[in-house]
């Protein structure tokens, strides 16, 4: 069923303010990975170690936005990917990192670096190499247009498989009540 003539779908993936759990779940499709690789090739991804993505068909983004760098990466994905997918609870709702949203960021930095014993000599790190944290963690759709959402923490391997195979087959991905899980 493999048609070597057929152009492969180019996919980029990344994890922003996430835990790579969604990526692990993608690896959990196990031997179906081989089938997948017959149809897709990976651009920027932790799986390839490509640092910046070029034009892609699909971008899978795990994690929400907690700092300036997350915003830059997300924008790079949005710019280069025809279809952008928010993968997992953090990308969809902010998730676990967003549970800091009721805390004042200034208080957090003060407590971690100044009040408490820290590795940074009582100073808040200010190296320009470090991305600055946003005052709140946000889901992806608040900053760029997102085409599809896959909830779940993480979405199961079957969920990701169903989504990707629908997409590859040119169908609108539908998960149904069984695979639509928020936890």
């Amino acid at each position: 069923m493999t048609n070597p003539e057929q152009k492969k779908i180019r996919v980029a993936t990344t994890s922003l303010a996430g835990c790579f759990g969604c990526h692990m779940s993608l690896l959990d499709i196990d031997e179906r990975l081989f089938t997948l690789l017959e149809h897709v090739e990976f651009d920027r991804s932790p799986l390839t170690d490509i640092k910046h993505c070029g034009p892609c068909d699909v971008g899978l983004v795990e994690g929400g936005l907690c700092n300036a760098e997350n915003v830059h990466v997300l924008r790079e994905f949005r710019k280069n990917c025809k279809i952008l997918v928010a993968v997992g609870a953090c990308a969809v709702t902010g998730g676990l990192p967003a549970q800091r949203n009721h805390l004042d960021l200034a208080d957090c930095l003060q407590e971690v670096y100044v009040t408490e014993v820290s590795l940074h000599n009582g100073l808040i790190p200010n190296d320009p190499e470090l991305p600055l944290p946003l005052d709140k963690v946000h889901p992806l759709h608040e900053v760029v247009k997102v085409d599809y959402f896959i909830p779940g923490c993480p979405p199961s391997a079957d969920t990701l498989w169903k989504f990707l195979t629908d997409l590859l087959a040119g169908r609108t991905p539908t998960l149904g009540v069984e695979l639509t899980r928020y936890d």
Partner: peptide
Amino acid sequence: FEPAFDLDGALATARRMTGR
């Protein structure tokens, strides 16, 4: 599409705390 919130404003606290 434009962000739902003021992105640069969301960094203001961190700028103030780091002096950057």
